[in-house]
Design a binder for these strands. Structure first.
Length: 683
DNA sequence: GATCCTCGAGTTCT
DNA sequence: CTCGAGGATC
């Protein structure tokens, strides 16, 4: 059936081969991947599809004929006695993917619809580097990478540095040969710790944990590898001599576990397509909370005799598939790089991206932080970039994957003048950010200042959002925060798309905001370097607004957390007649708070204690917890350090909890928090 | 003077 | 959440 191959298909296949080879080289040899895994998989799958449809296209040197990458010169070659095969990836990332695999298996085994469900072993698909460990008479004799599946690299010295791997099996009569296959990976905690240390020393950091694992194993100097802590999970076997194996895959893994080999606890045994889909869903939900990266799950027919019956198609087993999750990294194009003007005048470059679905949402914008960042990543308009949306929320441009045409207009230049007000853009010596010098003459800064003033943690004016502020400032109805308190129903209702009802709601919210606290008011003014914590400290120390306004820099420096830079900023703010005028107008408009005596020492049973909140609390909001703790004299900080007294961990606590455990800071749960709040109440 | 610790500021999308 | 930078501490 060697029918003629369409020229277009042949050309496409040739291009795919070259492209895949290029990325393979970058990934395996240079340890510098140029495209996300998902994109690579798509290219690979397309080539596989073409070669399957047109067998005449298949060539022995096609990348589809091998599993991994080239052998480096630096390591000795190792021939695998039993090949290390790769597992086919199920393309459909929904529940249908599980059903399709189950159906293929049943059909190949000749199971009729009425017959019982097939039993499957389900495991995580770790995102690391596949390694084969060879134990001879129970002693670790050799470790090898997958390489091309037939021949890998001898990385025994480096693998020995992985503490999870036993150098000797925990068993009495070890078999002559036991080869086990597994994945070397870097946990999130180890990845963070390594990068923090590298950053502190001004050394290059790792892009992601997978690169960390691959890069470490391939270090020619084992001492360097040892500095990058890796972990390991075993998920299969290779050559075995002198050992009776159980009848199922799950039995084999249990047996390996009993020998002291590290296996993952998330594995399970299930039956039928429904069981597979349930596992895929359950792990998908847990994925973000796992302490290491996975890119999917793996299903294997559990009975080894059935595995043998199913056999292999070319180089891929028919008894197993990898079922992936939606990618957290994707490729997209930079349509434009534009700048935003912040409250302090900071000019921030932002990449507008061709909309791309990554990590569950469609992303269109990603910050590029500052000019240096744009240069470091060398991003131009029309470049194709890798966008990541990791366990957290904020999308990030990781790197350029493919350069665009890069004509002069594609280059990003920091504008010399503010795009909003035309004032000069200034970048101070030694600072990373460029700023618009227009101050409050700049409409963008005025808008941001108003939004900050109305913010939830400041004056808390609900309903005064971006759209409304835009309109009010553009129509020149509002110039300063004081103008807000002069707004009437008529001027609001005159605005576009503003119903009388919602106009009234905003007016009510403005009205309510008149009663506030000194700390909130000071924070709302938006003085540079005065955030929430500093505003609170100022309010506590001075007691009244007049005292703060009249304090000179020496007096201000007496406040804790206020040094020369912050003091100068505060004094400068209150020296400006315009600012004093706005403050006066606000007070005249009825903005008020309860006056307090200055520098009242912190009281309450938690005085002097520092508490950090993390995760979601069931019984109260984090905001409430914070208020109650502060009422008892505690300081609620944002990050964990040695000096933290307690970390309160709610549901889905993340890195702060990990940090607390690492530093040995006491961790209490919501129950413990209540005990703390109530216990101290009684005293 | 160096190091550690906090705080401030900016950011995305539903 | 992350980075940068100011403040505190040793």
């Amino acid at each position: 059936m060697t029918s003629a191959v369409p020229a277009a298909a042949a050309e496409r296949a040739g291009w795919l081969r070259a492209e895949i080879e290029r990325h393979m080289h970058a990934y395996y040899v240079l340890d510098a991947p140029t495209i996300p895994d998902a994109e690579y998989d798509r290219l690979f799958a397309e080539l596989q599809g073409l070669e399957a449809a047109h067998p005449a296209l298949a060539r022995p040197d096609s990348p589809t004929r091998r599993v991994g990458g080239a052998v480096l010169d630096g390591f000795a070659s190792v021939r695998h006695r039993v090949p290390m095969l790769s597992i086919r990836t199920e393309r459909d990332t929904g529940p249908e993917g599980a059903a399709a695999f189950d159906e293929r298996v049943r059909k190949a085994l000749g199971f009729a619809p009425g017959e019982p469900e097939v039993e499957y072993a389900c495991e995580l698909k770790f995102d690391g580097l596949a390694i084969s460990l060879r134990y001879e008479s129970g002693v670790l004799a050799q470790a090898a990478t997958r390489g091309d599946g037939e021949t890998g690299e001898d990385v025994t010295q480096n693998v020995r540095t992985i503490k999870a791997i036993p150098l000797r099996l925990a068993m009495r009569d070890p078999p002559a040969v036991l080869e086990v296959r597994g994945e070397a990976y870097m946990s999130h905690a180890d990845f963070e710790r390594y990068n923090a240390r590298q950053r502190a020393q001004g050394q290059p950091t790792l892009v992601n944990p997978r690169n960390g694992a691959a890069g470490s194993i391939r270090q020619l100097d084992p001492a360097l590898c040892a500095q990058r802590p890796l972990s390991f999970f075993v998920y299969g076997i290779g050559e075995v001599i002198g050992l009776d194996l159980p009848a199922t895959h799950s039995g084999v893994i249990d047996l390996l576990e009993s020998f002291g080999l590290p296996v993952n606890g998330e594995r399970t045994v299930t039956a039928g397509a429904g069981g597979l889909a349930a596992y895929h869903r359950a792990i998908g939900e847990r994925r973000a909370r796992l302490p290491f990266d996975i890119d999917g799950v793996v299903y294997k027919v559990n009975r080894l005799d059935l595995q043998e019956a199913l056999g292999y198609v070319t180089r891929e087993p028919r008894f197993a598939v990898a079922h992936k999750f939606p990618a957290q990294e994707e490729l997209t194009q930079v349509e434009d790089i534009f700048v935003q003007v912040g409250r302090t005048g900071a000019i921030t470059p932002v990449a507008r991206l061709a909309p791309v679905f990554v990590g569950g949402v469609t992303v269109t914008n990603a910050t590029l932080h500052n000019e240096d960042e744009v240069r470091r990543k060398d991003v131009w308009r029309r470049d194709t970039v890798v966008v990541r949306r990791a366990g957290d929320v904020i999308p990030e441009v990781l790197m350029v994957s493919q350069r665009g045409p890069r004509e002069p207009g594609d280059w990003f230049a920091m504008p010399a003048r503010c795009p909003v007000c035309g004032a000069e853009v200034v970048r101070e010596e030694g600072e990373a950010v460029a700023r618009c010098s227009g101050g409050l003459y700049c409409a963008a800064q005025r808008k941001q200042a108003l939004l900050h003033f109305a913010g939830r943690r400041a004056m808390d004016i609900e309903g005064l959002g971006e759209r409304l502020v835009d309109q009010l400032v553009d129509a020149e109805v509002v110039r300063t925060p004081a103008d807000l308190y002069r707004l009437g129903l008529a001027s609001l209702a005159a605005l576009e798309r503003m119903a009388e009802k919602s106009a009234q709601n905003v007016l009510d919210a403005i009205e309510r905001s008149r009663r506030t606290t000194l700390a909130r008011f000071l924070f709302a003014l938006g003085i540079r370097h005065v955030g929430e914590a500093t505003a609170k400290e100022l309010a506590r120390h001075f007691g009244s607004l007049e005292a703060v306004m009249d304090a000179d820099e020496a007096r201000l420096t007496e406040v804790s957390d206020v040094g020369p830079v912050v003091a100068a900023s505060i004094a400068r703010f209150f020296r400006q007649p315009h600012n004093r005028e706005v403050v006066e107008q606000l007070r005249a408009a009825g903005v008020q708070w309860a006056e307090a005596a200055p520098a009242r020492p912190a009281r309450g049973a938690l005085a002097g204690k520092t508490v950090v909140l993390t995760g979601t609390l069931a019984g109260m909001s984090r905001e409430t917890a914070r208020e109650r703790l502060e009422a008892l004299g505690a300081k609620v900080a944002g990050s964990v350090s040695k000096r933290t007294d307690y970390v309160v961990a709610g549901a889905e606590a993340g890195s702060k909890l990990a940090k607390a455990q690492e530093l040995g800071v006491p961790v209490i749960d919501e129950h413990g928090l209540n005990a703390l709040l109530e216990g101290t109440h009684d005293q």
